[in-house]
């Protein structure tokens, strides 16, 4: 099973409508992606909490359908 980049982006946007999302396919196998997500909703949250928000947005696919998602998250610079 695998996912495509637009599916990942769609799920993240659904949970974080204000986010800027950039997905890069690392291996072309639908299983290894990198995502850079910038959202005001991350402000004041630790890296772990920010990444957990993304995993929640992916509704359990992380670690199953999606083997690897290299995440970079941040709140926008003011």
């Amino acid at each position: 099973m695998a996912m495509n980049a637009s599916e990942i982006e769609h799920l993240i946007r659904e949970a974080l409508p204000d986010a800027r999302v950039e997905i890069r396919d690392l291996a072309g196998d639908g299983d290894h992606y990198a995502a850079n997500v910038i959202s005001p909703s991350f402000r004041g949250k630790s890296r772990v909490q920010q990444h957990q928000m993304i995993y929640a947005a992916l509704k359990g696919r992380m670690g199953g359908e999606l083997h690897a998602l290299a995440l970079q998250t941040s709140a926008p610079e003011d």
Partner: peptide
């Protein structure tokens, strides 16, 4: 509440 491995803990706290 973290879906992947590896996981690092320092003094009992989950680091990432």
């Amino acid at each position: 509440n973290w879906p992947t491995i590896p996981q690092l803990y320092v003094k009992g706290e989950f680091i990432g």
